[in-house]
């Protein structure tokens, strides 16, 4: 494929990946390039506005969304290594603007070309196999927005099934919320704790050695719980496994 015909992808890296786990961003870039994309990262990007949106602050939400639209509408695609941030742009941005308005049209257009990473690789780039190798028993948590707003369920499983040596063991209630919910986990810490405790138990009971998911928020939450409980289970973003970037320490671990 000539350089010119490669689709230009704007990477929306998300604030959590940016601050907590840049390796997920790098794995994302690697996967996108493997799939034949040219990746660019607008440097002024910050947050997708979920905190404001979910707190009912529609004015600030609209302001932030307007900036994101302006920054990303130049690309062929916008790819996000998170179901919930992708859903924010894909599902909720259009709802912020009145029908028929200029920004509504621009939000609709952006929504049409915005994807969560794994579904983009499978559904748009038709990538079947990332050529990675990972000889471990893993389980996969479906994060809520990805699963229910973007209907991501088969794609990660299909790509994981091609990872050399990997064995997927489904946990019970893989589709039930882990209790993160953005500000929810600090507003209602006890309920959130109950939910993540149940999730951690399901992860443990699956017998898997590694937990994977597509959203860093959920992963930090579940990792924090499992590790507080003294669990040895390794926790990673799915992009790291698909990209073969599993030599770096897993979430909440160091190589020291």
């Amino acid at each position: 494929m000539s350089e010119k015909r490669k689709p230009r992808v704007g990477l929306f890296v998300t604030c959590l990946v940016d601050t907590f786990r840049p390796s997920v961003g790098l794995a994302t870039v690697k996967l996108l390039e493997l799939a034949g994309c040219k990746v660019e990262v607008p440097e002024k990007q910050t947050c997708c506005a979920q905190p404001a949106f979910n707190s009912g602050d529609s004015k600030s939400t609209r302001k932030i969304a307007t900036n994101v639209i302006k920054m990303f509408e130049q690309y062929d695609y916008v790819v996000v290594p998170s179901g919930s941030c992708a859903a924010m742009i894909k599902i909720h941005y259009p709802e912020l603007f009145t029908e028929g308005s200029g920004f509504r049209t621009r939000a609709d257009e952006l929504a049409d070309k915005t994807y969560e990473l794994v579904s983009f690789l499978s559904d748009v780039m038709k990538l079947k196999d990332t050529g990675a190798q990972f000889g471990r028993k893993v389980t996969y948590h479906d994060s809520c927005s990805g699963l229910r707003e973007l209907k991501i369920h088969k794609q990660p499983r299909a790509l994981l099934s091609k990872v050399d040596g990997l064995h997927l063991e489904e946990m019970a209630d893989a589709d039930v919320c882990c209790g993160f919910g953005g500000t929810f986990c600090v507003k209602y810490p006890d309920i959130s704790n109950d939910m993540v405790t149940k999730k951690a138990a399901n992860v443990t009971n699956s017998g898997a050695e590694v937990l994977l998911a597509g959203d860093l928020g959920c992963l930090l939450n579940i990792a924090g719980k499992l590790q507080r409980e003294g669990s040895e289970i390794e926790i990673r973003h799915i992009a790291e496994v698909l990209a073969g970037e599993t030599h770096i320490p897993a979430i909440g671990e160091t190589d020291q």
Partner: peptide, 16 residues
């Protein structure tokens, strides 16, 4: 109720 996993140290933007 839970630990907070550590950031890796540098931000993605800085690395990029």
């Amino acid at each position: 109720h839970r630990d907070l996993p550590s950031p890796q140290g540098k931000t993605f933007q800085a690395i990029w």
